[in-house]
Amino acid sequence: MPPRAVRTLVVEKKPMILTAEGAGTIQARYVNNIGFLVSGRLLTRNVDVGAFVKNDDLLASLDPVDYKSRLTAAESQVTSAQAALDQAAGEESRFKELLKNGFTPQARYDQALKDLQTAQAGVVGAKANLKLAQDQLRYTDLHSPTEGVVTQTGANVGQVVQAGEMVIQLSSFSDRDGVFSVPVLYISAAKVGMAVKVWLQAKPTEIVQGVVREIAPNADPITGTYTVKVTLVDPPADMFIGAVVVGEVDTEGHEVVTVPATAILQTGDKPEVWVVSADNVVKKVPVTVDRYDTSTVTISSGIVQGDRIVVAGVNSLNDGQKVAIEPTDAP
């Protein structure tokens, strides 16, 4: 009786491609909490949440009455200090001439010189106070330090705000990240610099390339997930801050063999395949299956590179049976 003809393929191990997907949101990479450098009552707020602002746009202003009064007082101090300096300079000049001609003692001239130096210091101090008053009045107007979108407001008109208190939260629109919450089961596979494909949940055909920029070192105490930030490369305008996106990562896992599902023989607790020896004799070999798909099976161990296995008619063979090889293409 001639040997039974069987279809076979030669095992070729390849890295298993692991794909992971997750939903996230678009967030600004740089978020500025902007506040006044001085305290006061909020007189105007010119922007609301969602407004786009440009560099140096007026965002809000404080009631300037008190600061104008301080400026007036500082200007008066400078005028008074300058008058005192002029008088002291004249006194010093006169006593210097008298001392030179021997009509006044050295001590009197020294006192005039001291008065002159004190007056000079008074002018310097008064001008510094004037500059401070001018700056404080200027600080009652809050200008945008950069362009961006308003994502939060911290004060309303009529409210008294303190120096440094957040009045406007401004998020940069030019630099945006996709921010994802990754379960602890998968965070070990995430690496800084890893490539990520990102698309809008509502527009899956518009794909943007991204790179993992930051991985949180600690899990969120509430969700137990790790925050992963992905820098987006040239994101479109419709990937606005707050938009829901999907990220996909493909990574290489350990080496596996993908075979047709028909190659698996299930006669006991462990799946097996028929391995054809060099003299065309078949032998059952147990294998470890990683994944069952519709028409293929992924095997992680049990067979090695170069093994020839039977891929059809596996239920019609016996251990030690001689077969005739009819090769087939790998899946």
Rank of each mutant, 00 (worst) to 15 (best):
A83C: 06
A112F: 05
T72G: 02
R70N: 14
Q117F: 00
N101D: 14
A60M: 08
T118L: 14
Y109V: 03
T118D: 14
L116R: 15
N129K: 13
K131L: 10
S69H: 10
T104M: 11
N101W: 10
K131F: 00
Y109F: 15
A60C: 06
D63C: 06
K68G: 08
L116K: 14
S80M: 09
S76F: 08
G90W: 04
Q87N: 13
F95H: 03
R94C: 00
A112M: 10
K131P: 00
Y109E: 02
S76R: 10
L116Q: 13
S69E: 11
L98P: 06
L62R: 01
L98D: 04
S61N: 06
D63V: 08
D141F: 01
K131T: 10
Q117E: 12
A74T: 02
Q111P: 01
D110Q: 13
S69M: 09
A89T: 13
F103I: 07
S93R: 12
S80H: 09
K96H: 09
Y139F: 15
F95V: 07
F95N: 01
V65G: 00
A112V: 05
A84F: 06
A84Q: 14
K68M: 08
Y67H: 05
R108S: 14
E92A: 15
S69W: 09
N129G: 15
L113E: 13
L85M: 10
A74D: 01
G125H: 14
Y139Q: 08
A89R: 11
G125R: 15
L132C: 00
P64C: 04
K100D: 09
Q120W: 04
R70K: 14
L59P: 03
D86K: 15
A74W: 01
S61A: 13
Q82E: 15
D63W: 01
N101A: 10
A126Q: 05
G122T: 04
K100R: 12
A112H: 02
D63Q: 09
G125K: 15
Y109P: 02
Q111W: 05
L71W: 04
A128M: 09
S80R: 12
K100M: 07
A74K: 03
Q111I: 14
Q106N: 11
Y109S: 01
D66R: 13
L62I: 07
V124Y: 07
E92T: 08
A121N: 08
Q117D: 09
V65M: 07
A81N: 08
V124L: 09
L132Y: 11
Q134G: 00
T72K: 10
P64G: 02
D110V: 06
V123T: 10
Q106W: 11
L99R: 02
N101R: 11
L132I: 11
T118W: 01
S61Q: 12
E75H: 01
D86W: 10
A107K: 10
V78G: 04
E75N: 08
A112E: 02
A81T: 07
Q77N: 13
G102A: 04
Q136D: 15
D110Y: 03
V65Y: 09
A74G: 03
